[in-house]
Design a protein around this nucleic acid. Structure first.
Lengths: 346, 346
DNA sequence: TCTGTGAATGAACACGTTTTCATTTTGTGA
DNA sequence: TCACAAAATGAAAACGTGTTCATTCACAGA
């Protein structure tokens, strides 16, 4: 109780530190700003007093005057999906090292975005925003943001968002899926697959749409039939059921190209544990992402990798460059994909 | 460019709204505070103008004067682990509905906490803090927090943290692992297991220590031998290797009780795919957590469930109650565990 | 010693809110 | 109509910081 009462007054301010150290409050501010001009010995003394008083500059007050919140907003539809959680983890670590904290928001599971969520986020004034949910147009997102310039992850088709108002500024991370998909198709073709099924992700997902489009294009270029398309939603259970349907109701397939690794796991388990088929002897399976689970022995999945570290580095680069030059022309970083060959094709 | 220039002035303030609506700035503030006294028609008009101007109250400025940041800090060692990511997801959703945003911080992977991280977090003035990394004592954590009262997840042993300074205030979520572990041991015993191995989690994890202690106690109560303990770290790869060692170098076991589901997966894969043993015929496996992957057909894991929704509800309840009564006596919520029987014991 | 240059310093202001408090308006009962 | 309580209103203060700007200080060169 006594302790609690003390706590009420415990939060030290710059004024208290200044008084204690016999300096002006401005000096305290400067002590915490490395490139401000302040006598070194004075700075040391101030920092020492600050530590004794357990003083930390208040970010809210700081952001009020500097206009920088040191917050990076992330809007995610599904934090628990392995790929997203990996990315959030790596991104948070990288941004933390640069002095930014992660502000996490959960969009609705169907990838749509509640306008109230955007309004809500706006109140926190994030310095940058990364939208992991893909179907909100730059125009709309920007109208809810002030200083922050949004970053979009764009797959293959550079012309995407061409319909956006020409004045709208956003930065792009361009993921070239073509390489990886081409390698995967070549491998499947080499092992004799003729009839390929595409096990889709969420219908609203642009990544999914582009993945299917690029697969279709690649099959066509290599003189193969267009894919049988199975509706999915990136989850294990839906993929499992869709695979059962394909082989029980539909006409089956030589190979399944899944929109993500988790979907591939569902397909593999349906084939092996319910349909009694062998992977890869009867049916070959390829995934997308290369999440950590892909190398687990039960799956040992051949998959198209998007290199996570590269991807995070690119995103952080975009954020920092944009913050350094808020009015610069649109920035673009490019990322390649490549096939990781394991045991589900052969 | 023109668009960018406009943006500089785009962020509307309460003053602008007030001017536009012919009211005082105070009225605007009240319009956004539902229980402030304001003529309904006036409030409507203000809100309408606010929407037209795309105005949102600035959280930083608001928090400066109210002392409430509407931020909940979460310190996590490993966002990508399925259990943590599930919990972050559910907690973020629940808190969002209550008007709190999630501020995510990444602790070092070895569960230790950089003091600079705490200092850094302190600057954001979170209303509440949840530490998913377990080995930082309340005394230490509180010394870095001001208004926020930390929440600790405590397993079984209520006397934990008894060594903390008596004045230190923290709230507790008490997880009764005993039930679930007892059910698991009974099931294993019923199927004839005699020699049980405990596949541990991170050595520094209190959850892990208590899980082992409770298992040992339960085995003893039921007249069984103490467990063979395998060092682990909650990861698949380490569990895989530890299981190989147990059967190649060590003396094997009838059953493996893993500290978490992911570890159980590693054990199962090592047994089936490298040691040529059958699960559950040769070796039985029990996990802990019941993450979504536990029901995947390749594993179909029998495991001790900590009900996530219940857990999140309890945590949110603790946060809200503490915010409502900052000086209340320590709060405690209790959570039970129970066995989910699937196919890895039988 | 004098001058000039750049670093070091602090007073005052600014950021965008909510809260307090004193005042005005509205509504109710006699 | 009057009196009184309750609701509605706005001016001013407060929250804790960074920045601006004018001033002072330290030091090197002549």
């Amino acid at each position: 109780m006594n302790d609690r009462a003390d706590k009420k007054t415990a939060r030290a301010t710059a004024d208290q530190v200044a008084r204690e150290a016999n300096v002006s409050r401005v000096a305290v501010s400067r002590a915490f700003n490395p490139n401000a001009s302040l006598k070194p010995e004075k700075r040391d003394r101030i920092l020492q007093v600050a530590r004794a008083l357990n003083y930390t500059p208040d970010m809210a007050a700081r952001s009020l005057v500097t206009g920088r919140s040191h917050l990076v907003g992330m809007i995610v539809p599904d934090v628990c999906s392995p790929w997203e959680s990996q990315e959030i983890d790596a991104l948070t670590t990288a941004l933390q090292a640069e002095g930014f904290a992660t502000l996490l928001f959960k969009a609705k599971a169907d990838f749509s975005m509640d306008p109230r969520l955007l309004t809500y986020m706006r109140g926190f004034n994030p310095d940058s925003v990364i939208a992991f949910t893909e179907n909100i147009l730059p125009d709309v997102l920007c109208s809810f943001l002030d200083r922050a310039v949004p970053i979009y992850v764009i797959y293959d088709d550079v012309k995407q968002f061409a319909g956006a108002a020409s004045g709208t500024l956003y930065d792009r991370l361009l993921v070239r899926q073509k390489n990886g998909i081409e390698q995967a198709v070549a491998l499947l073709q080499g092992y004799g697959a003729r009839r390929i099924a595409y096990l889709g992700g969420k219908a609203q997902s642009l990544a999914n749409a582009e993945r299917e489009r690029t697969l279709r294009e690649t099959l066509n270029e290599r003189g193969m039939d267009p894919p049988v398309v199975l509706a999915g939603d990136y989850t294990y259970d839906t993929a499992y059921q869709a695979t059962l349907d394909l082989f029980r109701i539909g006409e089956g397939a030589d190979a399944i190209f899944a929109a993500n690794d988790v979907g591939a796991f569902g397909a593999i388990d349906a084939l092996r544990h319910e349909l009694g088929l062998s992977v890869p002897d009867d049916v070959k399976v390829v995934g997308f992402d290369d999440i950590p689970q892909a190398h687990w022995k039960s799956y040992n999945l051949t998959t198209v990798r998007i290199d996570l570290e590269e991807r995070v580095r690119a995103l952080v680069r975009l954020i920092l460059m944009r913050l350094r030059a808020p009015d610069a022309a649109p920035l673009t970083e490019t990322l390649n994909t490549r096939l990781i060959v394991r045991g589900t094709v052969g």
